[in-house]
């Protein structure tokens, strides 16, 4: 089959070469048109010699911007490869899991009591929101935000569950005791009333939650919190990497 394809391609090529002058004449007008609308030349890339390819410090966890310093409560667990930038508040008992990025450079971000933001989440705040709500990202108490969630300037009221891979856009509001299923997308300015289950892209109403289910929501948050305690105990307050850096600097002959 492949050889046949190759053969047919070859015959096609010879056919084209034999009629090339004809073809060229036919395409000439098109070629002229192409030349006139050629894209502007791309800006040349100038590399700087002092760009760091390997930072021995890795990514800093806490990135202050100007006067804004991210604040982490003493008993909150924040995984070491999380990035907290700008106006971020991680309140007591909450946990932020590996690979999450909380970037409060335009507005405030709050992770409330006993709530958790799981792996690879991105929480960002826009400058303004389309609804009347303040454009800060507010995650209140006992909220479980699943892995790979993307939150942008949304307000999540107490005791909610946001499923994995769901996206909450600007100015959306999730009221108390509601659940968003995995993979749902909440368009800008949408509101989920309390005690409801929503799902889909864009998110739609599925059903009301039963009383038992609403009781389960804070239990889940507390369970994740208990797990985070275990992680919290694993990390000592100060790392001992500085010893290794000192050793490395000594071996390279840099005075400390």
């Amino acid at each position: 089959m492949a050889s046949l394809a190759r053969l047919s391609r070859k015959t096609l090529a010879t056919a084209i070469t034999s009629h090339r002058h004809l073809l060229r004449r036919a395409l000439a007008t098109e070629a002229v048109a192409k030349v006139t609308e050629s894209p502007p030349p791309a800006l040349p890339i100038t590399e700087s010699p002092d760009r760091v390819k390997w930072d021995y410090r890795g990514q800093r966890m806490i990135i202050p911007l100007g006067q804004w310093l991210p604040k982490i409560a003493v008993d909150a667990y924040v995984a070491p490869n999380v990035v907290l930038a700008g106006q971020v508040n991680v309140l007591d008992g909450s946990s932020v899991w590996n690979g999450a990025v909380l970037r409060g450079d335009l507005n405030k971000i709050t992770v409330g009591f006993c709530s958790n933001v799981q792996e690879k989440c991105v929480v960002h705040a826009a400058w303004s929101s389309p609804t009347g709500l303040p454009a800060e990202t507010m995650i209140e108490r006992f909220v479980t935000v699943g892995a790979y969630c993307l939150l942008r300037s949304c307000t999540i009221e107490p005791e909610c569950i946001i499923g994995q891979h769901s996206i909450l856009m600007e100015g959306s509001l999730v009221e108390t005791h509601s659940i968003l299923e995995a993979g749902s997308v909440l368009a800008p300015g949408r509101r989920i009333p309390s005690g409801e289950l929503w799902a889909g892209n864009p998110a739609r109403f599925v059903r009301k939650l039963t009383h038992e289910e609403t009781l389960e929501i804070p239990k889940l948050a507390v369970a994740v919190n208990d797990l985070s305690k275990e992680y919290f105990n694993e990390y000592l307050p100060y790392s001992t990497v500085y010893l290794e850096v000192e050793k490395m600097m000594k071996s390279h002959g840099i005075s400390i």
């Binding site: 890339i45 100038t46 590399e47 700087s48 760009r51 760091v52 390819k53 390997w54 930072d55 021995y56 410090r57 890795g58 990514q59 800093r60 490869n81 990035v83 990497v241 290794e244 850096v245 490395m248």
Partner: peptide, 26 residues
């Protein structure tokens, strides 16, 4: 010490980054 490489080349394929571009260390 962190072994994460922000810009990493694979044999002869080097990343080319402009001096005014921002590449987060992470």
């Amino acid at each position: 010490v962190s072994r994460h490489r922000t810009l990493m080349n694979l044999f002869d394929k080097d990343p080319v980054v402009d001096k005014d571009a921002f590449v987060a260390p992470g």
